[in-house]
């Protein structure tokens, strides 16, 4: 009896320790970013491009990378949506659940979901070499689109599976074609689509490995698809390696900006999902 009580007690202690450890680590990350970034954060950071080059220039801001990230992630999310919504609808609404292709496709998306972003980057880069496209905004968008497609398809897939089966039967019973039914589904999963979009956008904004081959880097705000574009995470990485304190400071401030953006995106999507559940 004593031994059983002791074991219970030890297990509980381990659990409390683990939870505290995990919690503290995660808290420390946010803490480090805020403490390091806050002193360097000013209005210039978000309104100016780096003055005298991102690596040596001591003044100016990160507007080029902020806009670049928005372009890359935004473009990829829109493209990704155009592909993943029809795919998710087709697999779940047009095809039966037992359909061999549908099952194979879901498996393939699971696998794609686990493929590292650097592999997408390398592949997109090969594709660009083949097509003669240079490192540019376009290249970045293509790479990130490939990266977000499996994320969006999987999210939408889950959302559609949660729609009650009665809906399908009820619409079909009224003599609707499959496309008309798909439209009904689209209305049903509006919030789900928004969640998928936010998730994909968040991933696109934060990813480095896919864009470092494909988007290039630039101190200017890109004005066409064929110009190279800077992105926020890559800017953090590059500037952190600079020996100049002001440049490093820009990296910390960028990290803070990126973290805040991501936290806002995730919070909104969490609130949306919770609302939907109720």
């Amino acid at each position: 009896m004593r031994r059983r009580k002791l074991e219970e007690w030890i297990a509980k202690a381990l659990m409390l320790f683990s939870t505290a450890f995990v919690g503290i680590c995660l808290f420390l990350i946010i803490g480090t970013v805020v403490v390091k970034g806050l002193p360097y954060l000013d209005w210039d950071m978000v309104t100016k491009i780096p003055d005298g080059g991102y690596y040596f220039g001591r003044s100016g801001g990160m507007l080029n990378a902020i806009i670049g990230s928005l372009y890359v992630a935004g473009g990829a999310t829109v493209l990704g949506m155009c592909i993943s919504i029809p795919v998710a609808l087709y697999l779940n609404v047009y095809l039966k659940k037992s359909n061999a292709f549908a099952r194979f496709a879901k498996l393939a998306f699971d696998v794609l979901f686990g493929v590292p972003s650097i592999v997408y980057g390398a592949f997109a880069f090969s594709l660009m070499v083949y097509l003669g496209v240079r490192a540019s905004l376009l290249g970045g968008i293509i790479a990130v689109t490939l990266l977000v497609i499996p994320i969006m398809v999987r999210t939408l897939d889950e959302v559609i599976t949660n729609v009650p089966k009665d809906l399908k039967e009820a619409t079909l019973a009224m003599g609707a074609t499959r496309w008309e039914m798909a439209k009904v589904y689209l209305l049903q999963i509006k919030t789900g689509i928004l969640t998928a979009v936010l998730l994909a956008f968040g991933r696109g904004v934060g990813d480095v490995a896919a864009v470092m081959f494909t988007a290039g880097f630039s101190d200017n705000i890109p004005v066409s698809l064929h110009e190279p574009a800077a992105t926020l995470p890559l800017a953090i990485f590059f500037q952190l390696g600079s020996p100049i304190p002001e440049v490093q400071g820009r990296a910390y401030a960028s990290a803070l900006i990126l973290t805040v953006c991501i936290l806002i995106i995730v919070s909104v999507s969490t609130i949306l999902t919770n609302k939907k559940r109720k």
């Binding site: 939870t19 919690g23 934060g206 990813d207 936290l263």
Partner: peptide, 24 residues
Amino acid sequence: FFLPLVNMLAGIPPVIYGVWGVFF
């Protein structure tokens, strides 16, 4: 209180973890 916090941190990009690693 804890779970939403954890979910939120799941979205933090790897580069931020890298920055934290270098400094901490």
